[in-house]
Nucleic acid binder design. Structure first.
Lengths: 190, 190
DNA sequence: TTTTTGACCAAAATAACATTTTAGTCAATT
DNA sequence: AATTGACTAAAATGTTATTTTGGTCAAAAA
């Protein structure tokens, strides 16, 4: 089993990316944190970017797994969106990496980070789109472009969770869930 | 009537800000474009930033006027939002200044521009919030936080008009109106 | 042999310094 | 009283020197 070291490296790198961001994390730092010679990192990963991408892919997978753990195909799309939403709100407080990357993207615009976030966005939107399409085929929700529906949901999530904080007091999980339901499912019409 | 010159200056500055953005526009350039000595600008405006703010305030006022020209208090909130939305989509193609500032903000992060856009956002959200509040009081739409409702509408507008272009083909005015109605008023539920 | 290592190197980032550009002033001009 | 453009200090930009960092590889360790 050669990859106890690989695990150490990935763990150290994840910690460092989470605390300092992509740019401020050096390969020497990762090596030191992992108690490994720098060269060892390069036996597992071609370069810094590939190591970073590997970690991002893991993050996406974990998000997916977390969502799938609460989604019940027997339940309605509406109910599952609610469950997944709460799961993501909980996930967020645990996995600070995405939060840190979001921040680095906005205030430094590091290319590798921009690219990584784009991929995450793609994965999330694609995932929601599939669920939405299925719900439409089951005639559970209105017929509309599933890609756009997924994109709008993701953006609304960011709007309520991240953007709103700059205008008013941060919203509680319950408030976010209520508002998400209002705008995505019910609409303002009476 | 001393202010034929002031008008020239404001016109020249508006043109330059629109074509080159805030940072790439110099006071010398504005003076030359307006056929005016540079000092003259400073008899009307304390500094570059104040001149810029003045122009931004005018833009906000024009947007407000354009919206109010199509809004009919006798009509429903729903109908008025539809009208205002179309007016804004038309307005956008005319007044390229906001578009240019949006771009400069995203790719350069010029502080003065960030601040100006924040003010525009505030003005727009405040305006929509008042309309939404009135509609709620008339029991025309669901009771909810009008500030958040306004914020969500503005963000949805940006999502559909600007952000979506990076994922799929730009949406037509009609498509945008349909989607806006779907998510704000009707909701996905059947 | 295979895996690990850290001194080593080229390239990139940063700092230090020189040069140019620009916002804003004001004495002279109209 | 209004206008101007040469002028200045400060900011931006360009240039060069210095340091940092990603990535390599011959040697050491396993």
């Amino acid at each position: 089993m050669a990859s106890e070291r690989k695990k150490d490296i990935v763990e150290a790198a994840t910690k460092s990316f989470t605390f300092f961001g992509y740019k401020a994390t050096t390969m020497d730092q990762i090596a030191k944190l992992a108690n490994v010679g720098k060269g060892t990192i390069y036996t597992f990963f071609k370069n810094k970017d590939e190591l970073f991408e590997d970690i991002c892919i893991t993050l996406i997978q974990e998000m997916k797994r977390a969502a799938e753990a609460v989604i019940d195909p027997a339940q309605s799309f509406h109910e599952n969106v609610h469950r997944a939403l709460f799961e993501m709100l909980a996930f967020r407080t645990k996995h600070q990496l995405a939060v840190k990357l979001f921040q680095e993207e906005k205030e430094m615009g590091t290319p590798a980070v921009t690219q990584a976030l784009k991929k995450m966005e793609d994965a999330i939107v694609a995932y929601i789109a599939v669920q939405a399409k299925e719900a439409m085929d089951r005639n559970e929700i209105q017929q509309t472009d599933p890609q756009i529906a997924a994109f709008v949901m993701m953006k609304l999530y960011v709007t309520l969770v991240v953007d709103w904080e700059r205008r008013g007091p941060a919203l509680s999980k319950e408030e976010i869930a209520k508002l998400f339901e209002l705008y995505v499912f019910k609409g303002l019409s009476r």
